[in-house]
């Protein structure tokens, strides 16, 4: 599973995407994905907010993840 990274999330992880290896426990929901990423990268847990987009739409914690989904981590936005 690949997660796209932007802004400060990209800086924290040190890459524009993060792959959860096939051997690891795959997160099945948005909540599990957030849990796993904030465990692997504690700095992500210190952000003002952390959202997840599934197929380029904001996704609530309960949304289930499918292997073909495009998944992105959305740190606090600051456009304008």
């Amino acid at each position: 599973m690949e997660v796209l990274l932007f802004g400060i999330a990209k800086d924290i992880v040190g890459s524009s995407s993060y792959t959860i290896s096939e051997n690891a426990v795959m997160p099945t929901s948005v909540a599990e994905l957030k849990q796993q990423l904030t465990t692997d990268f504690p700095e992500l847990g210190k952000l003002s907010s952390l959202a997840v987009a599934v197929n380029s739409e904001y996704a609530e914690d309960g949304v289930l993840l499918q292997s073909q989904d495009e998944i992105a981590l959305i740190p606090p936005v600051s456009g304008g």
Partner: peptide, 11 residues
């Protein structure tokens, strides 16, 4: 609303 929801980041 753009400032609240659109995924754009400013450094």
């Amino acid at each position: 609303t753009l400032k609240e929801t659109v995924p754009i980041w400013k450094k």
